[in-house]
Amino acid sequence: MRDKRRYILVESSCEVAEADRERFSSGLYSGLLQCIGEANYHRVNPRVMDFVGNRRFIIRSMLDGCGLTVAALAMIKKVNGDDVYFYTLKCSGTMKALGSV
């Protein structure tokens, strides 16, 4: 069965160098897990899909957990011990539609 997903364009307050992207993504998942909780994390199943420049990236979540992801991104203030904050700019069912922002 195919899962319904949402793609969210997110802007980070700090730049993420190309070499640090994997570490950053892993730190972000930890932050999301902390905010969402283990019981609900499976409803979100987040995955960083792509980076758009150094400060923007696209994160994928399940349709049901999209709201939780957006709220959790407002609550995360540290990734890997560094101060950071996120603004969610746009949400869509396809990655292509996020390109216009």
């Binding site: 307050s13 407002a74 203030k77 904050y85 603004y87």
Partner: peptide
């Protein structure tokens, strides 16, 4: 501060 601002979606 900008750290505790959010978008309308958030």
């Amino acid at each position: 501060s900008r750290a505790v601002m959010c978008s309308y979606m958030q």
